[in-house]
Simulated assay, not measured.
Amino acid sequence: MVTVGVLGLQGAVSEHVRSIEACGAKAVVVKKVEQLEDIDGLILPGGESTTMRRLIDRYGFMEPLKSFAASGKPLFGTCAGLILLAKEVVGYENPHLGLMDVTVERNSFGRQVDSFEADLTIKGLDKPFVGVFIRAPHVVKVGEGVEVLAEHDGRIVAAREGQFLGCSFHPELTDDHRFTELFINMVNIAVAV
């Protein structure tokens, strides 16, 4: 059984834990840098990207997260987590982790009051998936090695590049665990290599 961590500094942490466990994997809330050594994959949850970045800096997670990625372990960013993963963020000089070859625009679907749900056709899933969008970003541009997994209203809302998976929506806020399962499968493959 693989162990999947959820960065537990801020955001929808317990919902991701529930989703990971529903997929038959072991979930760990990561609050200390040392815990990164004991997990096979990591989810960067939704929340507030600026706050998360401040906490990443305060608790010394920046370089350990980059080392975690450099070791080939899979990372999955949802909503704010996608912003943290992106190599470029519109309107910002420097990225956060800068790991995934995508350009992301923050809050591109409006404010909190503009939150919505939409049926998404996601590559790799046989039936539509309900995406929950809350102050969601979207992917403006993808690099050469990035596979677009889903779009909504002509905007990219899910993508994958090698060991990195990112989405604009909150898959953990539904009882449909298929998108989390996509990530668990990536972790299983990485562990098997």
Rank of each mutant, 00 (worst) to 15 (best):
L7T: 03
G8A: 14
L9E: 07
L9T: 03
G11M: 07
V13F: 08
S14L: 13
S14M: 14
V17Y: 01
R18W: 01
A22G: 08
G24L: 08
G24A: 05
G24S: 08
A25C: 12
V29P: 00
K31Q: 15
K31R: 15
E34D: 15
E37F: 11
D38W: 14
D40S: 07
G41N: 10
G46Q: 13
G46L: 06
G46N: 12
G47S: 06
E48C: 10
T50N: 03
T51M: 06
M52L: 15
R53D: 14
R54L: 14
L55G: 06
L55S: 05
I56E: 01
R58I: 00
Y59R: 03
F61P: 03
M62G: 02
M62Q: 10
M62E: 14
E63C: 00
S67H: 11
G72M: 06
K73Y: 02
L75A: 05
F76W: 08
T78Y: 06
T78G: 05
A80E: 04
L84W: 05
L85D: 00
L85Q: 03
K87D: 03
V89S: 01
V90W: 02
V90L: 03
G91N: 02
E93S: 10
E93M: 01
H96W: 02
L97R: 02
L99K: 04
L99V: 04
L99T: 06
M100D: 05
D101F: 02
D101W: 01
D101L: 02
D101H: 02
V104I: 13
E105N: 05
E105W: 04
G110S: 12
G110A: 07
F116V: 06
E117N: 13
A118T: 11
A118W: 12
D119E: 15
L120C: 10
K123Q: 14
G124N: 11
D126S: 15
P128R: 11
P128H: 13
V130M: 12
